[in-house]
């Protein structure tokens, strides 16, 4: 895990990781809004299989383990919710 980053740096890195790990085509980090809903038909439109990749890279890169479904429901919502969790647990 890198030295303590500020929230904006974490958001930016998360967007890059989303694009790389989920092979999102024709999307750049600037196209993803901080408060854009990640899953479902609205927003970014990711699905449960993308969620696997996110859960795995959060753990691998950021050392974040999502403990249960309730925590998952709070963290895996937007780039902001993930970044906030990473920031407060760094």
């Amino acid at each position: 895990m890198p030295e303590k980053q500020n929230l904006e740096e974490i958001r930016q890195q998360l967007k890059e990781e989303l694009i790389e790990n989920l092979s999102l085509e024709d999307i750049e980090p600037k196209d993803i809004k901080n408060d854009e809903i990640l899953f479902g038909d609205d927003g970014l439109g990711l699905d449960s299989l993308d969620a696997v990749e996110i859960v795995v890279f959060l753990q691998r890169i950021w050392g974040i383990e999502i403990k249960d479904m309730e925590q998952g429901r709070e963290i895996l919502v937007t780039v902001d919710t993930m970044a906030n969790h990473i920031y407060s647990n760094a």
Binding site: F39, A51, V55, V56, I66, D68, M69, G72
Partner: peptide, 15 residues
């Protein structure tokens, strides 16, 4: 049928 197809506990239990 849980949030995101129950992915969170699945990954946790495999780990």
């Amino acid at each position: 049928e849980e949030h995101l197809g129950g992915i969170v506990p699945v990954v946790k239990e495999l780990n």
